[in-house]
């Protein structure tokens, strides 16, 4: 049973990533969308170098968050187009496998976009990373996972609701405030050298958020898929 769920999880993740691979304009579109946002934040902030440096971490995560809302919408658009989701439910794919597979694929996409975006932020905001690169990579992976798990969950709810394009951000953004705070603080600290060694505690907050949502959302996903 467990082995089958794990196998199906990877199959679902593979399927989603394969679709992304075959239409790479989606991931690149996401990247440029986030990049535009990062540039726009620089326009709205005070352009003096000290200020820009301090807003770099926040800008990176704001860009990723807004891009994630688009990418999550798209991740279900491929399921609803030909009613592929019903097919998956009836195959039968275990709901947990469906959730974890999609969440893994979304995490991979978001982390990839984040990793491509970081050098751009470093260059454009003149904020060289003075802390450990390894920790920054961990922030990107855990932060991507923190946006992907509740995102995968709520995106399914909102695809079926009216006014879904407004509803998803409204439901998702307040919920991921802890992840956003932790990830952008950790990123800003790592860019600033992290003299006090505080990034670790933000990482552990991010990890706690991930644990909470990856376990609970997976548990509840069965309920919301069943009702279709």
């Amino acid at each position: 049973m467990i082995a089958r769920i794990i196998k199906q999880t990877f199959q679902v993740a593979y399927k989603d990533l394969l679709i992304e691979w075959r239409s790479p304009q989606r991931v690149s579109g996401l990247f440029f969308f986030a990049l535009v946002l990062v540039i726009l934040v620089a326009f709205t902030a005070d352009a003096s170098p000290g200020v820009l440096k301090k807003t770099a971490g926040g800008a990176l995560w704001l860009g990723l968050l807004l891009a994630s809302a688009r990418s999550l919408d798209l991740s279900y658009a491929i399921e609803t187009d030909n009613d592929a989701l019903s097919g998956m439910v009836r195959w039968p794919v275990h709901p947990a496998a469906m959730f974890y597979g999609k969440a893994l694929a979304n995490t991979a996409v978001l982390t990839l976009v984040g990793m491509a975006l970081t050098p751009m932020v470093v260059v454009m905001y003149n904020a060289p990373v003075q802390g450990s690169w390894l920790q920054l990579a961990a922030v990107l992976v855990l932060g991507g996972a923190a946006l992907a798990a509740p995102g995968t969950f709520y995106a399914l709810l909102t695809t079926r609701a009216r006014a879904s394009s407004v509803l998803l951000p409204l439901l998702l953004f307040p919920l991921v405030v802890p992840a956003l705070v932790a990830a952008s603080r950790a990123t800003a600290l790592l860019m600033d050298g992290d003299a006090m060694g505080e990034a670790g505690s933000w990482l552990s907050l991010l990890l706690a958020f991930d644990l909470l949502h990856w376990s609970l959302d997976g548990l509840f996903f069965g309920l919301i898929v069943e009702e279709r």
Binding site: P150, F153, Y154, L157, A161, L171, L175, V177, P178, V181, A182, R185, S201, W202, L205, A208, F209, L212, L216, D217, F220, L223, I224, E226, E227
Partner: peptide
């Protein structure tokens, strides 16, 4: 019914995490 109840539960459980994060902030 199901969707909004699940969303209510998640929103409620998230409150302490939000509080902790902004407290550290």
């Amino acid at each position: 019914r199901t969707w909004s109840n699940v969303a209510t539960i998640l929103a409620y459980i998230n409150i302490p995490v939000t509080y902790m994060s902004v407290k550290w902030w």
